[in-house]
Design a protein around this nucleic acid. Structure first.
Lengths: 142, 142
DNA sequence: TTCAAACTGTAACATTATAACATTTTAATA
DNA sequence: TATTAAAATGTTATAATGTTACAGTTTGAA
């Protein structure tokens, strides 16, 4: 396992005086080591190997923490979580979801496309963040 | 209430030999008459005025029906449903969600932007449908 | 008129998420 | 180094969202 992602989280917590507690560290490790986005209750199940009989809030709090600090994304249409694959902060994400095998690929764009910005401007809307979920078929499955 | 939307649904069912049953018609009417996207259990509550003690599957089946036929959209981040504001079929949607008042505006684009298509092509992914949810502040609230 | 497909009714249950409050941990400070 | 307040977790309960399974009804075509 490539741990540079976890290392970053460790450093982030040190630098920002957040506590890298057992639930936080392990929830992030569990999400990071999952090939596909993982659901909260599956995280909880895996967490129970490390923490005795953990309850939902334990998982959900850690998920919320890493999401707030943009280390993970939530795939809304799957109710599942995956680590952020981009190497810098960003306020939006695109996800390619394979209808066949369930694999999710993050396709990061730094800037929100102009067409959308224009469409938004027309509606007099001020952008804060965005989430794009694209369904289709991945290379392997097509 | 402008009923042309409901009229379209009536015609659609006639033409495609789908039954426009009491739950189907009323679920669509309920979603259509809601100013904001409405949740399944709120649909169910309103449905109980017309149908005696309806159970979740009654609402969910009708929701699934109208979604399948692209009369409604599901806003994933809200677990809520709204009618489609575009006058033709399309396989993707953008939604501007106001963080303040919860209003959702559908901003329809007929074609998926090139930047995204290119990002997808790079990943060797075949597109079927897409959903973009944009959070921000609407005109009224800013 | 009967028959199969489409659809609804109902009960039970599964999944996903949060509220509320007690307890523990931590680091700064007196 | 004892105190303390903030940050975080533990625990119980429950709310919110969604599905399965099977029985019964409606419909239109053979």
């Amino acid at each position: 396992m490539n741990n540079s992602f976890i290392d970053k989280a460790v450093i982030f917590c040190e630098q920002n005086k957040h506590r890298l507690t057992l639930p936080r560290l392990n929830v992030l490790k569990i999400i990071h080591s999952s090939a596909k986005p993982i659901k909260a209750y599956d995280i909880l199940k895996k967490l129970s190997i490390i923490i005795r009989n953990p309850h939902p809030p334990t998982a959900y709090r850690a998920i919320e923490f890493w999401k707030r600090h943009k280390f993970i994304h939530r795939i809304e249409s799957l109710n599942a979580y995956c680590t952020c694959k981009s190497d810098h902060l960003h306020s939006g994400g695109q996800f390619l979801i394979c209808n066949d095998c369930g694999t999710v690929i993050e396709s990061h764009l730094c800037n929100f496309p102009e067409v959308f910005k224009n469409a938004i401007k027309k509606k007099m809307f001020t952008l804060s963040n965005w989430n794009l979920e694209i369904n289709g078929t991945c290379k392997k499955c097509s």
